[in-house]
C-alpha cells in the first residue's frame, strides 16, 4: 500500500465533467496505466481516492488536487508519467508526492481558492464596472441570493472575499482575479461576483488557478502538507 497526493489540471475541454464523471475518468485512466488502486472492503468496494474541493461544472482549473492509495508502491515520477500517458486531453498530472503518513484530507486543509474570470462588457460601462468591483473590497456586507433545493436564501459573502483585482485586457474585455474562502468555513463562488456587478456582463471564461491552506497570513500548498 502507498498513498499519494497529486495536483492536476482540468482544462477547458473537460470543464463540463461533473465531480462524479471526473472520478470515473481518473479511475479508468489509472486502470489503463496499470496502477492498481486500493479498494475499500465490503459488498460495494469503492476505490480509495478522494478529491479536493469540488469545482462547479463549466469552470476549468490549472490546479486541482487528489489523494489516492495504491496496492503497490510505485515511484512518484513513475506514477505521474504513466498516468499522464493514459489520461484524456485536458487532464494532466502536474506533480505527485508520495505521502509518508496518512495525510489530513484535502477538504480539511484547503481553505483558499483563486479564480480568474474573463468578462465581455459594454465598453461604455467598463469604467463603472471596474469601480463597482473595486468597491466590493471596501464594503462591509455583500449580499447574494443563492438557490438550493430548499429554496432561496440571502448570504453575506463579504467575509469570504479575501482579495479582488481587475485588469482591462482590451476594450470590452475585463479580467477579474478573486481570492476567496473555500471549505468548511464558507465558500465564495465566482457566480457571486457576477451577481454583484450592477451591469449586464457576459462571462466568457472562469478558471480556478490556485488553491492553498492559509492561517494567520501564512500560506502552505497542499503538496507541502503531506
Amino acid at each position: 500500500m502507498a498513498e499519494y497526493r497529486l495536483s492536476f489540471t482540468k482544462g477547458s475541454s473537460v470543464q463540463f465533467l461533473s465531480h462524479l464523471d471526473l472520478a470515473k475518468t481518473i479511475e479508468r485512466a489509472l486502470r489503463r496505466a496499470d496502477i492498481p488502486l486500493a479498494y475499500s472492503e465490503g459488498f460495494h468496494p469503492h476505490p480509495k481516492m478522494s478529491f479536493g474541493p469540488a469545482l462547479a461544472v463549466g469552470i476549468s482549473s490549472l490546479e486541482e488536487y487528489l489523494d489516492l492509495e495504491t496496492v503497490i508502491d510505485i515511484p512518484a515520477e513513475d506514477l505521474q508519467k504513466r498516468l499522464n500517458r493514459s489520461l484524456p486531453d485536458g487532464l494532466q498530472i502536474l506533480a505527485v508526492k508520495r505521502c509518508l503518513k496518512h495525510p489530513k484530507p484535502l477538504n480539511a486543509v484547503i481553505n483558499r481558492a483563486v479564480y480568474n474570470l474573463i468578462f465581455e462588457v459594454d465598453p461604455s460601462q467598463q469604467p463603472a464596472i471596474v469601480d463597482a468591483l473595486h468597491h466590493m473590497m471596501d464594503s462591509d456586507r455583500l449580499e447574494v441570493t443563492r438557490t438550493n433545493k430548499n429554496g432561496q436564501k440571502v448570504v453575506n459573502i463579504r467575509p469570504w472575499l479575501h482579495n479582488l483585482k481587475t485588469e482591462t485586457l482590451e476594450e470590452g474585455e475585463l479580467q477579474v482575479v478573486i481570492t476567496g474562502e473555500i471549505g468548511s468555513n464558507g465558500n465564495l463562488r465566482p457566480d457571486d461576483i457576477v451577481q454583484l456587478i450592477p451591469f449586464p456582463v457576459k462571462v466568457r471564461r472562469i478558471v480556478r488557478t490556485e488553491m492553498w491552506h492559509e492561517e494567520n497570513g501564512i500560506i502552505v500548498k497542499p503538496l507541502d502538507l503531506c
Binding site: 475541454s13 473537460v14 463540463f16 465533467l17 485512466a29 462571462v203
Partner: peptide
C-alpha cells in the same frame, strides 16, 4: 461558453478517450 446552460453538456463536447 453556452454549454453551462444545458443539461448534460458532455453530450456535446467530444474529446473522449
Amino acid at each position: 461558453s453556452r454549454l453551462v446552460e444545458v443539461n448534460k453538456p458532455t453530450r456535446y463536447t467530444g474529446g473522449e478517450y
